[in-house]
Design a protein around this nucleic acid. Structure first.
Lengths: 234, 234
DNA sequence: ATAAATAATGAGTCATACTCAGCAAAACTA
DNA sequence: TAGTTTTGCTGAGTATGACTCATTATTTAT
């Protein structure tokens, strides 16, 4: 085989690979659309194939089952969300502002693409197998963790509460709020984000000085109540 | 028709109605079990019928479709959860304690019956129809609202944040935390509840300002007294 | 140009949610 | 209590839609 031929063959192989990837992408997009329109159960594999301009059997060359396809759709969605979230955050900003940026982006996305978000839970369920977290969601969640980590390292945030608990407050609240808003057919409500971030003040390191009399008292009170809770347990 | 006969007929009608209800209940229980074991897609209508000791066709006399049955299962679950939650709350206790009781009960239930909780989202989805809240969940949520309402009326809680936003923090956080714990195969973690209730302090009307020095002191004193009471008990 | 390997097709298979004609039991009538 | 009507139950049968695979088409290798 001379170099000329090898180059040619390689280029061909490349375009072929691109063709395959384009086909896979087309199927994924068609599935995303139809799942959104008709729900997972309402979506017919035949229709997905038709919209992707392939034969029904072809879909099965790329995705072994309907559930596999569903997983791929959901995975892709969260991957794109991760990219979007990272872009929505201003690197130079304070931790608190970054959290606000992330919260806003997240809530808006959840509302806009609520159908896909709703379908996410389906992807986690596979017959009797235990519910697991999808890899791409774990990746998405890291965007939050990174911000928090930075806050802790800079001394802006206290590190006494496990980060996963704070994370669950953050994402749990936003997801629930998104559902509430969608069900009520309301647009994004910044009040939700203001409220959430007010709560997050609690994780801020506040020093007990004269200039913050209220904060001091609150801190003392909270400390006492924590003791009370501990004692109450035993 | 003499009274004797009417009574007899009525009694028969009653026992007949009971029989029907027992059958319906049997189907519901069989479905709950199997949905939990095998997931919604893994559960076969034939198997549900078999476990309920009825013919497959009979199931369809009580529930028009599998999805209907699913809805009934989920509805029943949340109805029982509502009863349990109301029982878990001590009427004479403070708002803050009641919230803790509810949070603990809720988190524990979510973890114990995670399978059914996970299935709840399926009941909301019906092909392309928009996601809606199930009636019984709306009822369940009232347990929380009632506590909050009482807190606002007694002046213990401030009313500036819309109650639904606070509710979303509460349930959203607990649901997310439950998922985290289940996925990690961990038992209930009281830290989650402590953290959540610490956050809820923000909604408490604590007059920690100059103009109400007494109120501040009273709050601190009350906290100390609670500790004293707890310690006295042990 | 030809063979080998890889990709695509869609008619056919199979599992299962759901139906319905026939049967059984209960309720009513006299 | 026998006959009649009404109500409830049954499970074999149907329709649908996910998935398969023998065949055909396209690409790669020589």
């Amino acid at each position: 085989m001379n170099p000329q031929q090898r180059t040619s063959a390689k280029r061909m192989a490349d375009t072929q690979r691109q063709r395959l990837e384009a086909r896979e992408e087309a199927i994924l997009i068609a599935a995303t659309r139809l799942f959104g329109e008709s729900g997972v159960d309402g979506a017919r594999m035949a229709e997905i194939a038709k919209r992707a301009a392939v034969a029904e059997g072809t879909v099965y060359l790329y995705y072994k089952t309907k559930h596999d396809l569903l997983e791929a759709v959901v995975d892709r969605f969260w991957r794109e969300l991760t990219t979007g979230a990272r872009q929505a955050i201003t690197p130079s900003e304070t931790v608190s502002t970054q959290l606000r940026e992330l919260a806003t982006y997240h809530l808006r996305s959840l509302i806009d693409d609520f159908k896909i978000v709703d379908i996410t839970s389906r992807a986690r369920q596979w017959h009797s197998k235990p519910s697991r977290e999808l890899p791409q969601i774990r990746e998405y969640v890291r965007v939050f963790d990174d911000i928090m980590q930075r806050g802790i390292q800079s001394g802006e945030l206290e590190a006494s509460t496990p980060i996963w608990q704070i994370r669950d407050v953050f994402y749990g609240t936003l997801e629930h709020s998104a559902r509430t808003l969608v069900i009520r057919n309301q647009p994004i409500d910044m009040g939700v984000i203001d409220n959430l971030l007010d709560l997050f003040d609690q994780y801020r390191v506040v020093s007990l000085n004269d200039t913050d009399e209220q904060g001091s008292k609150r801190a003392v009170l909270q400390a006492l109540e924590k003791i009370e809770q501990q004692v109450a347990r035993w």
